[in-house]
Simulated assay, not measured.
Amino acid sequence: MIYLIFIVAIIVTVIAAIKISAYSDAISRLSGMGSLLIGTFLLAGATSLPEVTTSVSAIYLDNPDLAVGNVIGSNLFNLLILAVFDVIYRQRKILTYIDEQQRYTALFGFLMMVIVPLALFFTVEIPLLHVGVDTVLIIALYLLNLRVMSRKRPKTEEATEEIVKEKYTLKEAVTGFFAAALTILITGTLLTYTGDQIAIITGLGSSFVGSFLIATSTSLPEAMSVFIAFKLNNSNLAAASIIGSNLFNLLILCLCDFLYEGSILQSASTSHTVTSMLLAVNSAILCYAIFSRNGRRVYLGPSLAIILFYIVSAVWMYVF
């Protein structure tokens, strides 16, 4: 029965993610905000809702490994999604033609992710807040990125004014977006509960289940949002949703730190150290891919490297 609930929750999450991507694409045009801002913050936040419920629920289940593993695993899987689609749609050269402002988001993402493995080794707790200094740094970097991203509109969207026959009004798109987001929030809770039970039944352990089974499941909205964005010929929305989701997931880790008694990263298993370091490496590779643009001899090199490091991290968590 647990497995059935888990599968049903995944199916409903996928359907809701398909709808939310279409609504986001409509909102980006109808509101005039642009796909970069919508993808980085609105769509990224919505598709990360399963990670919110999963990680927060794990805290109340007194399972910090599940919470930390879910965030790290989700971010690893998100980068895998972008890399795989980059390989599939290699002729589009996604990472070459996305807006230059995504450089800043990718760079901030890398800096935020470097903090995680460092905090797993050592962190200083702030007495009044009862959280590690790593949490404060991650939040500060996220807010700084938000300020940088909101200062000006992407040049590519300023220069391109394509007439599109709208399927929804702005009100319909916003209403549909929040309805789909609420659905994703509910299914995320079910994924957490069933995932915790599966970890107990199978004996695989919370670190592996959190980092890969649940993390992969809760990242399905991101996968579907990227797929739909490509179908809508909106590469900026696709890349922004993945990069933005990774930043938002780290905010979830900060929220868990506030809710958990003590430092959540210090309480988590040391097995997360290697996966978080591989996550930082993959984030660095993504930054290189975006910054280098046409300066690479082999276009698919970075994406293939990201896929390889994901496989290494999966094997590491399964073995150890």
Results as ranks from 00 to 15, higher is better:
Asn63His: 03
Lys152Trp: 13
His130Trp: 11
Leu255Ala: 11
Ala199Asn: 10
Leu146Ala: 03
Gly45Asp: 01
Ser28Trp: 07
Asp62Leu: 13
Ile2Ala: 02
Ile20Phe: 03
Asn233Gly: 08
Ala229Gln: 00
Val136Pro: 00
Ile59Glu: 08
Leu220Glu: 07
Pro302Lys: 14
Leu286Ser: 04
Arg153Trp: 12
Gly176Asn: 10
Thr96Pro: 05
Ile15Cys: 04
Leu79Asn: 14
Val136Glu: 00
Lys167Val: 06
Leu182Ser: 13
Leu220Asp: 03
Val114Phe: 06
Ser21His: 05
Thr40Gln: 09
Ser292Pro: 13
Leu30Ala: 04
Asn249Leu: 02
Gly205Asn: 05
Thr189Val: 09
Ser55Gln: 02
Ala289Pro: 02
Gln91Lys: 15
Leu213Gln: 09
Leu191Trp: 02
Ser206Val: 00
Ile115Trp: 05
His130Cys: 13
Ala17Tyr: 03
Ser211Cys: 06
Met149Asn: 10
Leu120Ser: 09
Ile264Lys: 04
Thr47Phe: 02
Ile201Arg: 10
Leu265Tyr: 00
Ala305Thr: 12
Phe85His: 05
Asn246Tyr: 01
Asn145Gly: 06
Gly176Ala: 07
Ala223Pro: 04
Arg103Asn: 15
Val281Pro: 13
Val148Met: 02
Pro154His: 04
Leu82Tyr: 10
Arg293Trp: 06
Thr218Asn: 12
Glu222Pro: 08
Ala179Glu: 04
Val164Asn: 02
Ile285Lys: 06
Ile242His: 05
Thr105Ser: 08
Ile20Gln: 03
Gly69Thr: 01
Asn63Pro: 05
Asn234Leu: 15
Ile72Phe: 11
Leu37Glu: 07
Phe77Glu: 00
Val133His: 14
Cys256His: 02
Ser31Pro: 01
Ala58Trp: 02
Thr105His: 08
Leu279Val: 01
Leu308Ser: 15
Val281Cys: 13
Arg297Gly: 12
Leu43Gln: 10
Phe110Tyr: 08
Arg147Phe: 14
Asp99Glu: 13
Ser235Tyr: 11
Val298Glu: 13
Ala268Trp: 00
Pro50Trp: 03
Ile163Glu: 14
Thr187His: 10
Leu286Cys: 02
Phe110Gly: 00
Thr183Val: 14
Val133Met: 15
Ser241Ala: 14
Ile198Leu: 12
Glu157Ile: 08
Arg103Glu: 11
Ala238Trp: 08
Ile264Cys: 06
Tyr97His: 15
Tyr193Gln: 14
Thr275Ile: 12
Arg29Val: 13
Val56Pro: 06
Ile307Lys: 01
Arg297Val: 10
Ser283Asn: 04
Arg293Thr: 05
Val174Asn: 01
Pro221Ile: 07
Lys93Ala: 09
Leu251Tyr: 06
Val87Asp: 05
Leu61Asn: 07
Leu304Trp: 04
Asn246Phe: 04
Ile184Gln: 02
Leu191Gly: 07
Leu253Glu: 09
